[in-house]
Amino acid sequence: MPHDHSDHPHAVLPSDPALRVKALETILTRKGLIDPAALDEIIDTYQNKIGPQNGARVVARAWSDPVFKAALLAD
């Protein structure tokens, strides 16, 4: 028999992922469990230093630089 989750605290969270993230961030901030400035720094790091752009640059260079491609494949 399926369990009814309507009485569960998570049932009040929005279904849209972006809204859920914002709701969770707000709750955690209000409870003092996260520092919004630290969270902004982590997000910036992943978006700008670790994110997919770096991988795209590596692939683009491998396409245009055969020596780099060989070194990449060897390592």
Rank of each mutant, 00 (worst) to 15 (best):
V12S: 15
E25P: 00
H8I: 09
Y46I: 02
P66H: 06
P2A: 11
P9C: 15
Q47S: 06
D40S: 02
V59H: 08
L73S: 07
L33I: 06
I50E: 06
D35T: 06
I42Q: 02
Q47D: 09
P52C: 08
H5I: 06
Q47T: 03
I27R: 01
D75W: 13
S6T: 09
I50M: 08
N54H: 13
V67D: 13
Y46D: 02
I42L: 09
H3W: 07
N54S: 10
R20T: 10
A62C: 13
P9F: 15
P36M: 03
A71R: 11
L39T: 01
F68G: 09
I43D: 04
D7Q: 14
K31A: 02
S6F: 11
I43R: 04
K22Q: 04
L19C: 06
I50V: 14
D16E: 14
A74W: 10
P2D: 06
R61W: 07
I42E: 03
I34S: 01
E41T: 03
R30G: 00
R61A: 15
T29D: 00
L24W: 06
N48D: 11
S15C: 10
G55P: 00
P36T: 03
A74I: 08
A37H: 02
K69V: 05
G32T: 04
I50H: 05
K31S: 03
N54L: 15
D35W: 04
K22Y: 00
P52S: 15
R20E: 10
Q47M: 06
Q53L: 14
T29V: 08
A70K: 11
L39H: 03
S6G: 07
Q47G: 04
D7T: 15
V67E: 13
A18T: 09
L73M: 11
D4A: 12
N54D: 13
R61D: 09
D4T: 11
M1C: 14
P66S: 10
V21H: 09
W63H: 10
L73K: 06
T26Y: 02
L13Y: 01
S64L: 11
A38S: 07
L39D: 01
D16R: 08
I42S: 03
A71D: 10
R57K: 12
D35Y: 02
I50G: 05
K31I: 00
K22C: 00
D4L: 09
I50T: 09
P52G: 07
T26Q: 07
P14C: 10
M1D: 13
K69H: 14
L33Q: 08
H5V: 07
L73F: 13
A38T: 06
P9W: 15
K69C: 10
I43Y: 05
I42P: 00
H5F: 12
D40I: 00
L28G: 01
D65P: 00
G32Y: 05
L39E: 00
A38P: 01
L24V: 12
S15R: 12
Y46N: 04
V58F: 08
E25I: 00
V58T: 12
H3P: 02
D44T: 08
T45F: 04
A62N: 04
